[in-house]
């Protein structure tokens, strides 16, 4: 099984440097459909699905390896080595922001800069830190995912319906977006929401852009500020977009912020 097949790696565009896009919990590389094409003229764009998501190879899922974000970071490093990435730009959404940080710690030459969209190094509050969730709330989420099994199954089923508003999407719809195996999605949720990468932040040496949305219930503004404060060479840009997925809800703003930074 090649790395390219395992992670459904898609390389497009051209340019002296590469820009790697990594999706977060809940979706797949489609997350970047309104952002990545904007960079194809100047960059070699690299998109991929984490194992368990989208069109990755589900057989490659190893519950031990992927029990920590390091397993995902190792995959990212393998993709980078396969494509001989050097001085590339890494764009990571949500949990993938930390996956990128871990990869960059291990191989600093691979990514010249990191762009973190809605990052959080720790979702659960403690005495001195506010991540936005109590441990009990995260447990509630995990058991909700367990109970919502039927809902997950429905989401898994291919959505073959057409889309009269956007006929250009018709063909892709036959495959449905963001397919996830419910069992893997549950495990990924656990890894994501239990992770704690606060100690890694000060060691990140790449220049870093933190893109923070308003009213993001998953990674609130305080968390974005925390990330900015603890990564030495970082900038924080507060977007007008609301929610957790500005790459979909406000792609123009995201594209502009990335351009201004790189």
């Amino acid at each position: 099984m090649s790395v390219a097949k395992r992670n459904n790696v898609q390389v497009r565009g051209s340019g002296p440097r590469a820009m790697v896009f990594a999706h977060g919990f809940g979706c797949d590389q489609n997350m970047w459909r309104f952002v990545a094409p904007e960079f194809e003229r100047d960059y070699r764009t690299v998109l991929f699905d984490h194992v368990g998501a989208g069109h990755s190879d589900l057989n490659a899922y190893d519950p031990v390896k992927y029990a920590s974000l390091q397993g995902y970071a190792d995959d990212l490093l393998e993709i980078g080595r396969e494509l001989r990435l050097e001085n590339a730009v890494f764009v990571g959404h949500s949990v993938s922001a930390m996956i990128g940080a871990l990869a960059s710690l291990q191989h600093p030459a691979m990514f010249e800069s990191l762009i973190m969209v809605g990052p959080s190094p720790r979702y659960i509050d403690d005495d001195t830190y506010k991540g936005g969730f109590s441990a009990q709330q995260i447990e509630e989420l995990l058991s909700f995912l367990e109970e919502n099994y039927m809902g997950w199954s429905a989401q898994m089923a291919p959505m073959i319906m057409g889309n009269p508003d956007r006929p250009e999407l018709g063909e892709e719809l036959t495959n449905s977006f963001c397919r996830t195996d419910p069992e893997i999605a549950r495990a990924f949720a656990r890894v994501t929401f239990m992770s704690d990468n606060r100690a890694d932040l000060p060691r990140v040496s790449a220049r870093t852009l933190v893109l923070q949305c308003r009213e993001d219930v998953i990674a609130c503004q305080q968390v974005g500020e925390y990330v900015h404060k603890h990564i030495p060479r970082s900038e924080l840009v507060l977007l007008n977009a609301t929610g957790h997925c500005p790459n979909l809800s406000a792609p123009d703003e995201v594209v502009a912020a990335i351009r201004a930074f790189v």
Partner: peptide
Amino acid sequence: SMAGRIFFETHVRPLLRMQGFFN
């Protein structure tokens, strides 16, 4: 609910933006 919020933000909103519906 808290779990519902996370599900809404990570699944419902993205899918609506991408395919226009989520049933």
